[in-house]
């Protein structure tokens, strides 16, 4: 479960995230939308422990990300918008590295790595150094690494960037299955069709403020006020 309570993040005088509150129960797929520079990535980075909130509280499975970061992070997997990997490691080595960070037993890591290699179809190049990978290959390895320790919470920033249609399909199905198995997913995306297809609930952020939170049903109703298109809702909420 993820809970954001009045979370604010300021950079000097600039407020990037302004008093955001939202609760995502286990098994819910939450889509986080907004225009460029609205505060999506900042919110996500605070949840992942990469930024400290200026005020407010972020709880992951009941643990405060600031006060009990190690406990909170042990349930979490984070997939950044830019899949930066250690260039000199191979994809497989990177997966072992992540498994170790989550204190997994070697046998268990090896089993999970074989599983994700098969699932994401990365066996052909997983033993090459990641400096040779394309953006899509890096993205697949990063998402595979996020599943290694079977997280209870998945925080994912723009997951489909750089993926070819086949990989995108695999990722969509995987995320759907994870939500089905009780994982809370917080996904930031620009892709309106994906949000519409996958998310149980969506939130719109604009200038750091959460301007809309609703289920697919709420969204459908809202859409009817305009021309029935999700794009129009997005433009209206973020104008």
């Amino acid at each position: 479960m993820i809970e954001l309570r009045d979370v604010t993040k300021k950079f000097g005088n600039f407020t990037a995230v302004d008093n955001v509150s939202v609760r995502i129960p286990p098994g819910e797929f939450f889509g986080f939308l907004g225009p460029n520079g609205a505060g999506k990535t900042t919110t996500i980075k605070m949840m992942a422990g990469l930024f400290a909130p200026t005020s407010g509280q972020i709880l992951i499975n009941g643990f405060d990300v600031v006060k009990e970061p190690l406990k909170a992070k042990s349930f979490t997997s984070y997939v950044p918008d830019q899949p930066f990997l250690y260039d000199k490691l191979t994809g497989r080595e990177f997966l072992y590295f992540i498994g170790g960070l989550y204190k997994m037993q070697k046998k268990e890591v090896t089993r999970k790595i074989e599983e994700v290699i098969g699932h994401f179809e990365i066996g052909e190049w997983v033993d090459k150094r990641t400096e040779d990978y394309s953006q899509g290959m890096r993205q697949r390895v990063t998402i595979a690494a996020a599943l290694i320790h079977e997280p209870k919470v998945l925080i994912i920033d723009e997951p489909m960037v750089g993926l070819d249609p086949k990989s995108a399909k695999i990722v969509r199905e995987t995320l759907h299955q994870m939500a089905g198995s009780g994982v809370s997913i917080f996904m930031s995306t620009h892709s309106l069709p994906i949000a519409e297809e996958l998310c149980d609930r969506v939130g719109f952020i604009k200038d750091g403020r959460l301007v809309f939170v609703g289920t697919q049903t709420d969204l459908q109703a809202y859409k009817q006020k305009f021309d029935g298109k999700f794009e129009s809702v997005f433009l209206e909420l973020t104008k």
């Binding site: 422990g49 190690l70 406990k71 992070k73 984070y78 930066f84 250690y86 992540i98 204190k103 690494a145």
Partner: peptide, 14 residues
């Protein structure tokens, strides 16, 4: 550590 440092900072690692 570069931009890949996110792996350690977002994991349950002291």
């Amino acid at each position: 550590e570069g931009k890949s440092f996110w792996t350690q900072l977002s994991s349950p690692l002291n």
